[in-house]
Design a protein around this nucleic acid. Sequence first.
DNA 1: AAGCCGTATGAAAGCACTTTCAGTTTAGCA
DNA 2: TGCTAAACTGAAAGTGCTTTCATACGGCTT
Lengths: 336, 336
Amino acid sequence: MAPTKKTPTIYDVAKLSGVSISTISRVLNTSDKVNPETLKRVMDAIDRLGFVPKAEARARAMQGTGRIGVLTPLFTAPSFVQRLRGVASALSKANYELVIYPVDSMDHLQGYLSSIPLMRNIDGLIIMSLAINDQDAKRLSINGMGTVLIEYLHPDINSIQIDDTHGGDLVAKHLIKKGHKTVAFIGDIEPPEKFAIHPVRSRFNGFKQTLQEAGLSLPKAYVKSAPYTQKETRQAAQELLNLPKPPTAIFAASDTQAFGIMKIARQLNIKVPDDLAIVGFDDVDTAEYVDLTTVRQHLDESGRLAAEILLARISEADRPLQHINLPLLLIERDTT
Amino acid sequence: MAPTKKTPTIYDVAKLSGVSISTISRVLNTSDKVNPETLKRVMDAIDRLGFVPKAEARARAMQGTGRIGVLTPLFTAPSFVQRLRGVASALSKANYELVIYPVDSMDHLQGYLSSIPLMRNIDGLIIMSLAINDQDAKRLSINGMGTVLIEYLHPDINSIQIDDTHGGDLVAKHLIKKGHKTVAFIGDIEPPEKFAIHPVRSRFNGFKQTLQEAGLSLPKAYVKSAPYTQKETRQAAQELLNLPKPPTAIFAASDTQAFGIMKIARQLNIKVPDDLAIVGFDDVDTAEYVDLTTVRQHLDESGRLAAEILLARISEADRPLQHINLPLLLIERDTT
DNA sequence: AAGCCGTATGAAAGCACTTTCAGTTTAGCA
DNA sequence: TGCTAAACTGAAAGTGCTTTCATACGGCTT
């Protein structure tokens, strides 16, 4: 009995269990495609030898790493989660792992962006609602890192966009049709753009534009810029509703913020939609539960699409660039 | 300037610099044994291609940034997301990557469980609300894979648990105090346990037990087993409310299901809480927005704790096993 | 019995490098 | 000028694993 002095390889395992190396590999990867009996024999051999597959060799032999990464801010906000859900569903079908890089600062983002293409422990990248500059884009494409952007446009990279301006327009039209004259807006439209993208700006612009075309004004006092937090949003809603002439309708730039407004209305005993109409944006799952009128942007779909584009690009290297524009739909429920 | 599409290999560098791959390799490893002139040419080519040897990159990536994996079913359900949020926050502080393995079938789970410990692309593992058997546990610990279980107990593995029975008890007590006599339960308590865990069973048991101790009965007709979907939940709620003697209070095993019940009540024009009290479980973010009375289990915290235990275990190998029990708290809001 | 599946397996061809080995220069020295 | 030791360099043979392709075998149909 001459125990192999070197660390065991699949060849050793194969010999010991009397099968070919292909079978060992199969046991390791797609164990469901192996006869249970054989599987057990192999497993025993693996245990007996204390065999551990070498990650290095594995990574080399495999086409890629089998995982794709998602760069995202606020990844636990409902809208991001729903996008992630779409991504995950497409990925798990294709048997890819999902690596999440939560971004919470500009530095953080830059750090990821500069190391990811080099580290190569990912086959593709989805960047959600984050702004990237030319240099980043260049680095990504030079290093052949398949990437798709969601909610941001860069000419050199695949992207999936939402026509936020049109979204604002839809809401304005809806509110006008309902006969509202005094409307307000709550959303995060602070000028200093941080690392994250502000589709909110566009939503606001489209909203305002359409309103004005219909002869309605949107005075400053009726526009509240509140960050994406409950506290600030509610505060803003309070202020709006305490105005001498309070608005009869509020457009919130996101569903979550709309929920906050609904809550305030309840506390103030304001009847929705009779005394106050509320419309959100996103059509998050919960929007349906609470019967919120909102603009659907099919979050799941955007994620799924992103993943599919990526997968396609990975398997078929030089696919033409794609810039997809997802349609929006106003969903009327009980808050207008 | 034609940027190579695929990621460059030494072959590309060799071609571009007009030498053989062996030379490239030599440049990379023992550069002193290469003619300075050749060396320069090769270096230029390397720069121009942005070439990084794959294996090396991998190794470097591995040592700097660790990664920990999370095995979870339904990872987009709000309660899981909030736990993930906790995990992510603890992880990003420590500069760890988050790899998510969405589990959607028993096979899937077994596949992960058998390959993860061997493949070792991960430094630690968090398993959420999933049942694992002795063999899995053994394999995990034999291979030294630091693991923590959430919502499941196995003597050999760290775990974080929630006293669901007590949760049910809390709800029962609350409802009794409010004077309810006819109460109902909606939740997924189907007997055939699938791959996912059913804390719901325990919630139900605790609920029923306390009810009975107080002399209240919980007849079969008032117990609806509905899976975690809106459709079924609402259907169940309908049935309950159409009973000749409808319940005055419903305990839903999860907040999301409670939302469904609230919606049905609204449609049926049933006043909450006057005609019907509703209490959920989890205290998901949204629960506060809609003023749902519920049982808080501090989801974020459970995730954070799990990550911290893991991290501690990774840096300090033989930490004693921990079995943590997280407290529950009844949050009274406007639905009771 | 002939044909046809579907599953379980093995042989062999990669993958991205490293290393050995032998061949070619080059330089040094008579 | 001829000869040899360095100094370089490339072809080719590994490295440990995955994956494609082909084959074998036990049913099932018709």
